[in-house]
Simulated assay, not measured.
Amino acid sequence: MKAVVMTAPGNPDVLQLRDLPLPSLGSRELLVKLKAAGVNPIDTKLRGRGTFFPDKMPAVLGCDGAGVVEEFGANVTKFRVGDEVYFCNGGLGGHQGNYAEYTTVDERFAARKPKYTSFAEAAAAPLVLITAWEALYERGRLSPNERVLIHAGAGGVGHVAIQLAKLKGASVCTTISSQEKARYTQELGADLAINYKQNDFVKAVLDWTNGEGVDVAFDTVGGETLQKCFPAVRVYGDVVTILEPDKNTIWKVARNRNLRISLELMLTPMLQGMIETQQHQAEILEQCATWIDEGKLKIDARHQYKLSEAAKAHDLLETGSITGKIILLTES
């Protein structure tokens, strides 16, 4: 099979298309002929600094995948040949990732692909859907009629976070960097789009909430953004970040406002081998597939490349501030 192999840590040029043998199939695993693979920031970080398993090089990156079951292990009960699936599995340097024509996935970690969406859109979805779901629904405990601030609403995680918040019955404000992105996020359901380059987003949030602040702030940017959002959150509110807090973060405002700070890393179950939690993440994808099929949730997979163009896809992602997701089409 063809696969994009990371030969060593470094720039995008270390991603090379090679021939690899088909992965071996475990008793509870599916052999999936991949149609598309998602490209996420974790991929570029691992490519640049090295994977979580440096002794297992070269590596195939890519956590997100979508494709068709071609074979299954003796103890598989949920899926059969021809079933269309999507999932977040592998790609961290241990289990093979999805920048390939084939991969294997434990049936417990796979979900049925949404019926009425493309493989590209399905492959764009798993990591960002699970991240936004866990951040808003589980870490932030978002409830109906609450108000939420979502940073970078036009991005991969942001664009699905807006939709999940609206499905919960919340009011949403989001930060964006252009009028085009303002229109885009409002089409997704955002009640207020704040151009952070032109406006103080904290003042805009406080004006929007009559001086109280939002119930939940979701930081998808990191750096100083985390600290800046503290005064925009109501007393006893929630702040969730998907980035490691900067060592220079000043926590005084957060402490004085009794904010609950949560960290979200949806990769933890995969890294820790937490089977039940990985099963729960597959259940999240099953529910989201239903919403996608009902037209309640949309995935933006506008940036599509061939498998052989993985380096170009990484180059684009590292420019920053793109709208939607980047996909590799694994079929030539």
Rank of each mutant, 00 (worst) to 15 (best):
K2E: 13
V4E: 04
V5F: 05
A8L: 12
G10Q: 06
P12G: 04
Q16Y: 01
D19V: 01
K33V: 08
K35G: 13
T44E: 00
L46W: 01
T51V: 03
P54D: 09
P58S: 04
A66E: 04
V69I: 09
E71C: 07
V76H: 08
R80M: 12
G90P: 03
G91M: 03
L92S: 07
Y99S: 08
Y102N: 03
V105G: 06
E107T: 10
F119T: 09
A120F: 00
A123G: 07
A125R: 03
V157D: 02
A161F: 05
I162T: 00
Q163K: 06
K166H: 02
K168T: 12
V172E: 03
T174C: 06
S177A: 10
Q179S: 15
K181N: 15
Y184G: 05
Y184M: 10
Y196T: 13
V202M: 09
A204W: 12
G211F: 12
V214Q: 08
D219G: 01
D219R: 07
V221D: 05
K228N: 14
K228D: 11
Y236Q: 15
V239R: 09
E244R: 14
K247M: 15
R260I: 11
T268R: 12
L271P: 04
Q272W: 14
Q278T: 08
E283L: 12
I284R: 06
Q287P: 02
D293W: 10
E294V: 02
I299N: 01
Q304D: 07
L317C: 04
G320Q: 15
I322L: 15
T323Q: 15
S332V: 11
